[in-house]
C-alpha cells in the first residue's frame, strides 16, 4: 500500500502545479527609452520585487548609480554615458539578479566611454570636410528622425522582449520528468552497485535478487 501511495503523492504534486510552472527566481528586465533606462524586477512566479536595491554599473564594475524599485517593482535610471549598463537588483534575502542594457540601445548623443570622446560622434556624423552648411543641417534632421524611429521601434518591441525574457525561465513538464528520470536512474545505479558489491562479498550467485 505504501509502495503505491508515495508515487501517487508525487503524481498529485505534479498535478498541483499543472505541469507548467514558472521558476522561482528573481529577474530583471530593462530597456532604454532615449537616455532613460527603465525596467522592473520580478519573480518568475509573477510577483514584483518591491523596494529592492538597484545598482547600475558599467561592465568593468564601476558603479554608475544606485536607486530602488518602487511599490510596483519599477525603477528608472538616467544614463549619462553610452556604455553597457549592468543593472543588478538585490532582494537582500539572497535573491540577486542582473540584466545588461547594451550601449547600442542608448542614444548616440551620449558620451561613449571616457569624456574625451564626447564630441566624436557628432564629428563622425557630419562626415567629410567638404560638407556644406545645408547638408549639415539635413544631417541634424536625419539624426532627429533616426532617434525618433529608434524610440518608436524600441517601444513597439518592448512587450515582445519582455515576453521572451519571461519565457526563457518557464519550467516545462519535460524538465520535471527529466529530473525524475535522473533520480530514478541514479537510484537504480546505486542499488545495482550495492547488490554487486554484496554478491562479490558473499560469493553468492543469486542473480534474480538484483532485478526489481
Amino acid at each position: 500500500m505504501t509502495r503505491v501511495s508515495i508515487p501517487v503523492l508525487v503524481t498529485v504534486m505534479l498535478l498541483m502545479f499543472g505541469g507548467v510552472a514558472e521558476a522561482h527566481k528573481l529577474k530583471v528586465f530593462a530597456t532604454a527609452t532615449g537616455a532613460a533606462i527603465e525596467g522592473y524586477a520580478y519573480f518568475g512566479t509573477g510577483g514584483r520585487a518591491r523596494q529592492s536595491e538597484v545598482t547600475v554599473a558599467s561592465p568593468d564594475g564601476t558603479v554608475l548609480g544606485k536607486t530602488t524599485t518602487d511599490d510596483e517593482g519599477n525603477f528608472r535610471y538616467d544614463a549619462t554615458r553610452r556604455v553597457d549598463h549592468v543593472i543588478t537588483v538585490d532582494g537582500r534575502d539572497g535573491h540577486v539578479a542582473s540584466y545588461t542594457v547594451a550601449a547600442d540601445e542608448l542614444p548616440q548623443t551620449l558620451a561613449s566611454g571616457g569624456d574625451a570622446a564626447a564630441a566624436k560622434p557628432s564629428a563622425e556624423r557630419t562626415g567629410a570636410p567638404i560638407a556644406a552648411a545645408p547638408a549639415a543641417s539635413r544631417t541634424g534632421e536625419d539624426a532627429d528622425l533616426k532617434a525618433f524611429i529608434d524610440r518608436s521601434i524600441a517601444r513597439q518591441i518592448r512587450p515582445l522582449r519582455e515576453q521572451i525574457d519571461a519565457y526563457q525561465e518557464k519550467i516545462r513538464l519535460h524538465d520535471v520528468l527529466g529530473g525524475l528520470g535522473y533520480i530514478l536512474g541514479l537510484g537504480g545505479l546505486a542499488f545495482g552497485l550495492a547488490q554487486r558489491r554484496k554478491r562479490a562479498g558473499t560469493g553468492a550467485s543469486d542473480v534474480t535478487r538484483g532485478a526489481q
Binding site: 503523492l9 508525487v10 512566479t45 509573477g46 535573491h95 533520480i183
Partner: peptide
C-alpha cells in the same frame, strides 16, 4: 530515491508571500 524525487518536485509548489515568493 523516491524522497529525492519528492523533494525535487516540492520546490515547484510555490505561492506569493508579501513582497517575495
Amino acid at each position: 530515491a523516491i524522497l529525492a524525487a519528492v523533494f525535487f518536485v516540492a520546490s515547484l509548489v510555490h505561492f506569493p508571500v508579501g513582497p517575495t515568493s
